[in-house]
Design a protein around this nucleic acid. Structure first.
Lengths: 199, 199
DNA sequence: GTCTATACGCCGATAGAC
DNA sequence: GTCTATCGGCGTATAGAC
């Protein structure tokens, strides 16, 4: 059946393996503190050639990573909107998704929330202008219109709601809040929602 | 009276001039995208020698900048605590200070809120463990004890209160919220305080 | 105390052999 | 498709002259 138990199950599959390794290192040490040589070590290669085969530049790795993360987020949000009618339920599921990601794939949330992506990806849209976050803005607009959320400029609503959520997640990621992330999700949600809900 | 009107009033004074120039560039482009040569250009020197005279390494510049900013913040917070008895007034003045800084010295707030300082200053304490922010935590504790703030873990309170404030400031700095920062201060304060105030 | 010149290392990137 | 070798470039840091 198996064709030799290789050292590890490191063989994700060429390109993906590189992306996973890079994500891990970028999240740990930052983009600029990570060299192609570090990535090469991480995937257990002897040289950086396998990397150069798939990516022209180091930036291209970060770029593909960034867009891939945002794409997945975008898909998830579409799914959430499809499955939930009320704005309150949509936002609750989005928050749930982010807490889940923070626990199960903290590198992704580190990349999004802690790294300053515009510093090494200057030509990419900043996170707040990306598709998934524009969709969130639209959800908020819908909530204002339907009366679920109190009237105010959507970016202001956004800053209040996601200010609480993101800051909570950042403090979980950095270890300032050191219990399991579930412990904080409920209170963060209540507080965030109450800060924008009508009456 | 004056001893020659020099090109500009660039002559802040050697070391300070370097720090001001570095702060500006770090805030604009990030630490890693700023070379000593950039700083040299900014202060109008021909070589990096004047810089090396005052600082052994580029990191030392960032470090002194970081500690100087936190020291000043720390002093301001001491002053605020001295002048205000009630916790609500102390927090309101701290928020006021941060909005004022965002308007009058956005580089400082960029440095604190947007740059990932631990990426280039790994041996410095992260911001949330710095003296001024520890003092803020103590203010929160006092508020919980006095009954002004609802009972909960201080870091949770912190994440909710400053989550809103910081996110608002970040969106002002990055231009997502594009009116004058005063326009947003009031609503951010109300929302942040309500999210933690008792009843 | 500022400029000249230089040294050093590291990293990113490429071309060519196996 | 991976390894060898190398190239150029940049950024930091230093030593020495004015």
């Amino acid at each position: 059946m198996e064709k030799e138990v290789v050292e590890q199950d490191n063989k994700t599959e060429g390109k993906d393996e590189i992306l996973v390794a890079a994500l891990k290192l970028f999240a740990e040490k930052g983009y600029f503190n990570t060299s192609l040589s570090d990535i090469k070590d991480q995937i257990g290669a002897k040289t950086t050639s396998p990397i150069s085969r798939h990516f022209k530049t180091k930036q291209a790795i970060a770029s593909e990573l960034y867009n891939s993360i945002l794409d997945n987020l975008n898909i998830s949000i579409d799914d959430i909107r499809r499955r939930n009618k009320k704005v309150v339920d949509q936002l609750r599921e989005i928050v749930d998704l982010m807490f889940t990601l923070t626990e199960e794939a903290p590198e992704i949330m580190r990349f999004l929330l802690i790294l300053n992506t515009s510093e090494f990806l200057p030509e990419e849209k900043p996170i707040h202008e990306s598709k998934p976050f524009q969709k969130i803005q639209r959800i908020i607009q819908a909530g204002v219109k339907s009366g679920e959320i109190r009237a105010s400029e959507p970016p202001v609503i956004f800053s209040q709601f996601f200010g609480i959520i993101f800051q909570t997640l950042v403090m979980i990621i950095t270890g300032t809040l050191n219990k399991k992330s579930d412990s904080y999700q409920a209170s963060a949600w209540v507080s965030a929602w109450n800060s924008i809900a009508k009456v």
